[in-house]
Deep mutational scan, measured.
Amino acid sequence: EETGVRVELAEEDDGEKIAIKLWLRIEDIKKLKGKYKDNEAIEFSFDLERDVPEDVAQEMVESGYVCEGDHKTMAKAIKDRVSLIKRK
């Protein structure tokens, strides 16, 4: 499903790190509610043992990086990427 958002690794995952750096990349602004630039990327750290995707997305909303209306879309994108990383 195309959401307009993609999360990718910002650094090589060696399988050892607990906290990883990720990029939340805006790919299609028409599919989102907030005002973003095409190909805008937000770099953030995610602790694989402690962080919760919904909470991280909420922090982005509170910091003004993400529109409240896009919270669920961002949280799902983060959750999907993190579950792929954890499965390795």
Rank of each mutant, 00 (worst) to 15 (best):
F46M: 06
F46H: 03
S45M: 15
E54I: 00
K31L: 07
R50L: 02
T73N: 06
E16F: 07
L22S: 06
M60N: 00
K17M: 07
G69L: 14
V66E: 03
S63E: 09
K31G: 12
N39D: 10
L24G: 06
L24Y: 06
K79D: 10
K33C: 10
V66F: 07
F46R: 02
E12S: 10
K21R: 13
K35Q: 11
R6S: 08
D38C: 11
I20S: 08
K33E: 10
E11M: 00
A57S: 04
E43K: 11
D38K: 15
G15C: 08
N39R: 11
C67Q: 06
F44Y: 08
K72W: 10
E11R: 02
M60D: 03
I78K: 05
H71D: 04
G4S: 08
I20P: 08
G34D: 05
K76R: 12
H71P: 01
Q58R: 13
A41D: 09
S83K: 12
K21F: 02
E49Q: 09
K17P: 03
V52R: 13
C67S: 11
D14S: 09
G15I: 04
M74E: 04
I20V: 14
D55P: 01
A57V: 15
A75R: 01
A75D: 01
E8G: 05
W23P: 11
M74S: 01
D47T: 01
C67E: 11
Y36G: 06
R50P: 05
A77P: 02
V7Q: 01
D70H: 06
E12Q: 12
E43S: 12
A41S: 12
V82G: 00
R87Q: 11
M74I: 15
I85N: 02
E1V: 05
L22W: 07
A57C: 07
E59C: 11
E27R: 10
Y65S: 10
L22E: 08
E11F: 04
D80I: 00
D70F: 06
D47F: 04
W23G: 09
S63F: 08
G69Y: 09
G64P: 00
V56R: 02
E12K: 09
D28N: 11
A19K: 15
K30L: 06
K35A: 10
E40M: 14
D55A: 13
E49W: 06
M60R: 00
L48Q: 04
D47N: 13
M60E: 01
R87S: 08
R81M: 06
Y36W: 02
E27Y: 13
I42P: 03
E59I: 10
T73K: 14
E43F: 07
E49R: 08
V82I: 13
E62Q: 12
R25F: 12
V82A: 01
A19Q: 14
D28A: 04
E16G: 11
E16H: 11
H71E: 11
A19E: 14
K37N: 12
I18Y: 08
S83E: 15
H71R: 13
S83D: 15
Q58L: 10
M60W: 08
E43H: 07
V7C: 13
K76H: 04
I42T: 06
E62C: 08
E16C: 12
W23D: 10
P53F: 00
E43L: 13
K79P: 00
E68F: 03
A75H: 00
E16K: 10
K79S: 13
S83Q: 13
E59L: 11
D55N: 12
I85C: 06
T3S: 15
E40I: 09
V52F: 07
K79E: 12
D70Y: 05
E11C: 05
P53G: 01
